[in-house]
């Protein structure tokens, strides 16, 4: 049977100009929305920056090194809060990094059968799902009463160390740091676990084949090979800790001065400052708060971009 060509069949109809432009319009439309989503970051920075402008003009970089925050005098400096942000985040990292990486090792290697391992992985992830404000209320009514005797003991036995120089008053920098550690733990554990799991099985077998024990393989092969992934996870966690607001606000005591370097003293972070003052702020105070928000934004931006670069390099390499 011979094939005939029938030019009148609907299959051969030219696509109409409208259909074609509809199609490319669709593609360009989605691209435009994607660009808009990408640009949102810049829009946020510009808007917050614009509202911060009066305070930036008035206080300049002195804002970063002055610890005087006085609504009545119209004098604003965020050193206390920047200090508090950094110290609470460092405490959180100090506690969460070893534990998080330890969990990642335990849950990435074959210590447990998958049937038991998967639920534990899920439970650790759930730690990240609990709302910040719930950690806050739990911290106020449960954690601080438990921590207080421990803080008093620290102060009485190790009070000569500047870190423990003040008597704990209940809420304080240490309590905020501890809750932050709990909150960033799942991030570190999850990303470190991904990094370890991504190490090729061949390397693991090569090490075992040479007579390495499981832990020698972990320390000498898997951790170095997964290092940049783990580092990226730690950076992301640091960014999250610096910006975390509610639990910190509820537990840090919200003192607007640096009295000592003691972690048992009360303090505040940039985020807790914003949380406490924005709702009732007016005039220059709004601008100063926007300036503080911009500082926090810049801090977390740097940390997050570094994390993103580290994580990308790592995912390209493996």
């Amino acid at each position: 049977m011979a094939l005939t060509t029938d030019h009148s069949s609907p299959m051969n109809r030219q696509r109409s100009g409208f259909a074609r432009s509809l199609d490319s319009g669709f593609v360009w439309g989605t691209a435009a929305v994607a660009i808009a989503v990408g640009l949102l970051l810049a829009v946020i920075a510009l808007q917050v920056g614009e509202d911060a402008l009066p305070a930036i003009q008035k206080f300049g970089l002195g804002f970063l090194v002055s610890s005087r925050w006085s609504v009545i005098d119209g004098e604003f400096g965020a050193l206390t809060q920047i200090y508090g942000t950094i110290v609470t985040s460092l405490i959180a990292l100090f506690l969460a990094v070893p534990i998080g990486v330890g969990i990642a090792i335990f849950l990435s290697e074959d210590f447990l059968p998958p049937r038991i391992k998967q639920p534990i992985v899920f439970l650790v992830e759930l730690l990240a799902a609990i709302p910040s404000v719930v950690y806050g209320i739990w911290g106020i009514f449960v954690l601080i009463p438990i921590l207080r005797p421990f803080g008093i003991w620290l102060h009485e036995t190790l009070g000569w160390i500047p870190l423990f120089a003040t008597a704990p008053a209940g809420p304080g920098i240490y309590a905020a740091g501890l809750v932050l550690a709990i909150m960033i733990l799942p991030i570190i554990a999850a990303i470190s676990r991904d990094a370890m799991v991504a190490v090729p099985a061949e390397l693991r077998q090569a090490a075992y084949g040479l007579g390495a024990t499981r832990w020698e393989t972990i320390f000498q092969i898997l951790l170095p090979a997964g290092f940049s992934g783990i580092a990226g996870g730690v950076m992301l966690a640091l960014g999250r800790a610096m910006g975390e607001t509610m639990a910190v606000t509820m537990l840090i005591g919200n003192a607007n001065t640096i009295d000592s370097f003691s972690i048992l003293s009360q303090g505040s972070t940039v985020a807790s400052l914003l949380a406490n003052q924005f709702a009732e702020a007016g005039g220059l105070q709004i601008s100063a708060l926007m300036y503080a928000a911009l500082v926090l934004f810049a801090l977390t931006l740097v940390v997050n971009i570094l994390a993103e670069i580290v994580v990308r390099r790592f995912s390209l390499k493996l």
Binding site: P200, E202, L203, Q205, A206, A207, Y208, G209, L210, G211, A212, T213, I221, P224, A225
Partner: peptide, 20 residues
């Protein structure tokens, strides 16, 4: 098994040098 693998070495299908 760790002791066994020390005495019985192995070379794999795909070359797998460590990233060192």
């Amino acid at each position: 098994p760790v002791e066994v693998r020390r005495q019985v070495g192995m070379v794999f299908q795909k070359p797998n040098p460590f990233p060192k």
